[in-house]
Computed example of a mutant assay.
Amino acid sequence: MTKIGIFFGTDTGNTRKVAKSIAKQIGEEIAAKPVNINKATVDDLLAYDVLILGTPTYGEGELPGLSSGATAESWEEFLPALAGADFSGKTVALYGLGDQAGYPGHFVDAMGMLYDAFSDCGAAFVGFTGIEGYDFERSKALLGDQFVGLALDEDNQKELSEGRLAAWLAAIRSSWQ
């Protein structure tokens, strides 16, 4: 069985915690140890057939990175390196953290930005989720009436995150089996 690469951007550590939970639930025989994107190269991602990528959304719809106030480089600095990369044949599942009460017009926007960037590189996606149970105005992470991955709100719905994560992993399990 091919190992799954798990890469995340973070500044406060919440997205890293979710990445570690994902790796634990999948199991170390299948999931590689999660890696902060600021320690990764495009070739590191290309080494996997299946990727799980996570990002928080900063402020009013920003990727984590130096210009958004993060203390270290993150997705903002990494995404330009994807130019010309070929992710055809790669399966990607996304998760994003956001604050639907504080930023209802930008809920999990950064997840949508990852979707756009990796879609432009030819990746195939799994793990779209419904919008039921969320209360927001707009999101760049919407495709039709679904999020392009798992949306988590650790600020306002932390109690729902564990169940949402378990259901999402069960739904995407077929992508690596």
Rank of each mutant, 00 (worst) to 15 (best):
L114V: 03
E159W: 08
A124M: 06
K90G: 02
E62G: 08
A81Q: 15
L66F: 10
L63K: 01
S21F: 00
G127N: 09
R164D: 02
A72S: 11
G130P: 07
G96C: 07
G65Q: 03
S139A: 07
G13K: 10
A171N: 15
A141I: 02
L150T: 11
P64S: 13
Y58I: 04
K17P: 00
T15Q: 04
G89E: 13
L165P: 02
L66R: 15
I4Y: 04
D44S: 12
K39R: 12
I22F: 01
A23Q: 10
Q157M: 05
A117W: 01
V50S: 01
L53C: 11
T41R: 15
A23C: 07
G163T: 11
K33C: 02
I172F: 05
L143G: 11
M111H: 09
V108F: 00
P64L: 15
S88Y: 03
W176I: 09
A123V: 04
D43G: 08
G13Q: 05
G105Q: 12
A151Y: 00
K90I: 05
N14V: 09
K90P: 00
D153T: 14
E29F: 06
D120M: 10
T71I: 12
G61Q: 06
I131N: 12
G69M: 13
G54R: 04
W176V: 05
K33P: 14
T41K: 14
S175G: 08
D86C: 14
D145R: 09
G13E: 08
M113L: 12
A23H: 05
E132H: 11
G5A: 07
N36F: 01
S175P: 02
K39L: 14
L97R: 03
Y48Q: 13
G130Y: 09
L94I: 15
G27I: 04
L97H: 02
F87G: 01
A167N: 10
D145W: 01
N38Q: 01
D86W: 00
T71P: 04
E154F: 04
A110I: 00
M113A: 03
G69I: 14
L152V: 11
A83F: 11
L79Q: 06
R164E: 05
V35D: 00
A31I: 03
G127P: 05
A117G: 14
A85V: 15
A19F: 06
D86I: 12
V148N: 13
T91N: 02
G59C: 05
G122V: 08
I30V: 15
S88P: 03
A32C: 09
L97D: 02
L63I: 06
G65I: 00
F118S: 02
F125Y: 13
E62H: 14
S119E: 11
H106S: 13
I131D: 07
A47P: 13
